[in-house]
């Protein structure tokens, strides 16, 4: 059993990590909150003054905010839909015995390790560019008009690129979950005459539901903060057609130097992310007890 002595030592060992994370969390958070109530623009130093809820009023009534909120939801929802459904199908496929499993697995996982700026620029130039991209060449070959993906369907194109990056993650996790499924249970069901479809629906889906929840929650956390992919492909445009909340706040604070407005936006983003986080934490917390 732990002694008094080892308890004190344990506390000492934990404290650096706790203090650092506490500082990292509290200091900027308090500053963001404070700035959000100030009129504070970096172009007008020394003009800071308390303005109450003005920044929030401006941010929350700005049409760009609604566009960004809608785009954020579409981006997160679209990518989740594609990766969860695609990932489940892919995991079911890769879980079957076939020749060259190791190699195929490696190929499927690869996009996850590609840095966001590379994958976005490669898709933008080598594939989606209407003149020199592969899709353009292909359209030309078929005698069709080339389609300028990123200017005519900017958000859909970004959803596609981000899905390519995250499909491996969903697949990998669902595959791991599938492999922990009790094979005997499946065989028993098969012998009792359960069809492939009902085996999938009554045994695999309940078994996978936990992993799917985890995939959804973790991806949501990351997808809410998509930034690099937008920066290097469309820069949020045309207009606000592909601006998400993260990008909007970036533009406001670092390009327009509006610290107050950007901070108010930051607080809104934190509140939205927290709603997701609460669900995720509950899931992981439950697992900790098990």
């Amino acid at each position: 059993m732990a002694t008094q002595h080892s308890r004190a030592a344990a506390r000492l060992m934990i404290s650096p990590a706790v203090l650092l994370l506490l500082g990292w969390m509290i200091v900027p958070l308090v500053m963001t909150l404070y700035f959000s109530f100030l009129r504070y623009n970096l172009l007008m130093p020394g003009m800071e003054e308390f303005t109450g809820w003005t920044n929030y009023r401006f941010f929350l009534t700005d049409p760009a905010f609604f566009d960004a909120l809608g785009n954020t939801l579409l981006l997160v929802g679209g990518v989740l839909l594609i990766t969860v459904i695609g990932g489940t199908l892919l995991a079911l496929l890769l879980d079957q015995p076939f020749w060259g499993q190791g190699v195929v697995r490696i190929m499927v996982i690869a996009p996850f390790f590609v840095m966001p700026t590379v994958s976005a620029l490669v898709w933008k130039n080598m594939f989606m560019n209407p003149v020199n991209g592969l899709f353009g060449h292909f359209a030309h070959f078929l005698g069709l008009e080339p389609y300028d993906f990123l200017s005519q369907a900017p958000l859909a194109s970004i959803i596609f690129i981000v899905s390519w990056q995250w499909l491996p993650f969903a697949t990998l996790i669902l595959l791991t979950a599938l492999q922990s499924l009790d094979q005997e249970q499946l065989e028993a069901a098969e012998m009792d005459g359960a069809s492939a479809l009902s085996r999938f629906y009554y045994i695999m889906v309940p078994h996978l539901s936990r992993a799917i929840t985890v995939v959804i929650l973790i991806q949501t956390i990351f997808l809410l903060s998509i930034f690099a992919e937008i920066l290097v492909t469309t820069a949020g445009g045309p207009g606000t057609a592909s601006t998400n909340l993260t990008y909007l706040i970036y533009v406001q604070s670092l390009l327009q130097f509006d610290v107050g407005g950007g901070s108010a936006g930051g607080v809104v983003a934190i509140i939205l992310a927290n709603i997701v986080a609460i669900f995720l934490m509950r899931m992981i917390g439950k697992n900790l007890d098990a």
Partner: peptide, 16 residues
Amino acid sequence: MLSTKMLPPVGVLVPI
């Protein structure tokens, strides 16, 4: 500790 990871980076971009 896990909850600090859920903080969206853009929320603390300005102060940092």
